[in-house]
């Protein structure tokens, strides 16, 4: 019985995350109204604006930092400052 409840609490049917349930999914509020883009539009990679809130280095966002976390408050569900928040076509460049 307890096991069942636990699974319900720890699995999100919306984003498949194991850190929260669907009724507490960050997607409920982290939803942007994006600007309409025409097909020819190419996003520019914002190389000079990618900085890490944790180690202050350029080139990655804090959510992907490999250094030890400085803040004592945990980042359970991920934040706005992640490569996942870049337009899809720029993510490969970010991860390479």
């Amino acid at each position: 019985n307890q096991c069942k409840q636990r699974r319900k609490f720890n699995f999100c049917t919306d984003c498949n995350s194991k850190t929260h349930s669907a009724d507490r999914c960050p997607n409920i509020w982290r939803s942007y109204i994006t600007l309409p883009q025409n097909k020819a539009h190419k996003f520019k990679y914002p190389a000079d604006l990618i900085y890490c809130y944790n180690c202050a280095e350029r080139g990655h966002y804090g959510d992907e930092c490999l250094q030890q976390r400085v803040s004592k408050t945990p980042n359970i569900n991920g934040s706005a400052f992640t490569g996942e928040n870049l337009p899809r076509e720029l993510r490969r460049q970010y991860h390479s």
């Binding site: 942007y32 109204i33 994006t34 600007l35 883009q37 996003f43 520019k44 914002p46 604006l49 990618i50 900085y51 966002y61 706005a80 400052f81 992640t82 490569g83 928040n85 870049l86 337009p87 720029l90």
Partner: peptide
């Protein structure tokens, strides 16, 4: 520095 703002997607 926000990724969505830096790429002008919003």
């Amino acid at each position: 520095l926000h990724p969505r703002m830096a790429t002008r997607s919003i």
